[in-house]
Amino acid sequence: MSLQPQQNLPSLLLQENSQSQSSSTPHPALPTLPPTFTTQNPPTLLTQGAEALIYKTTYLTPHLPAALKHRPPKPYRHPTLDARLTRHRILSEARILTKCRREGVRVPAVYFVDWEQGWMLMEWIGGGSVRDALAAFLTKREVGEESVRGLMGRVGRAVGRLHVAGVVHGDLTTSNLMLQPTTASSPLDGQVVLIDFGLGAVSVQDEDKAVDLYVLERAFISTHPKAEGLFQEVLRSYEESYKGAKVVLRRLEDVRMRGRKRSMVG
């Protein structure tokens, strides 16, 4: 993972989590799921971040797949504070997801939220991440340059639409962009779906939007060094996607220049 010294971000956070988790020392017992999920057909764990665990399960019928996000209680926090934070974060994420959906941004639909127990059921998004699709493209080069440019365009438009809706993601990496296959002919076709709004917020500030783009850019450069040129395509379609984009892109220049705020030379 290549992080630069001035790398400032809330993020790139969950990006390589699944890998780092598996390579670390044997994990102690996982947090227990709420009783709703411990009976027949226990959900399968997909990934564990610092805050939450993601499982695959079903909703209403055994044929409708769903994603379960569980925020287990943190024993180190005071129970009152823990309950307050879990409630706030689950609700805020659910509100952001519904807001995005209302505004026509493609995100998972929220099926059910239990803020007391700390879990949320969401629409299951099939397919893989843009990160994996890009990595596969860069190693195998099975499809043409056109097709990857098309994907970059869709990524830029998806981010643009999110920002039009007045929402910032807070952790925009290629792992948090899913590629949902449609009637795909090429592995790079499909709809771009934004996931994991755990650090999301409602914001109209250009600064926050520029930081989103900066995080995405860093994620591009660090995980797909060969794909640096492709990011220009993302920015180009982002710029076309809405009126205020030009101001945000100018702000992005500042964010790039600034990096970390404090000098640690000594």
């Binding site: 993972m1 790139l12 956070l13 969950l14 990006q15 390589e16 989590n17 890998q19 780092s20 988790q21 390579s23 670390s24 020392t25 564990q48 971040g49 610092a50 805050e51 943190k74 180190y76 926090r77 005071h78 504070l81």
Partner: peptide
């Protein structure tokens, strides 16, 4: 103390998850 330390532990945990250190 409870509030500021919870914040510190949280950001430490996030960095641990990121670099895969325990």
């Amino acid at each position: 103390q409870e509030t500021v330390f919870a914040m510190l532990v949280e950001i430490t945990e996030r960095a641990m998850a990121h670099v895969g250190s325990s």
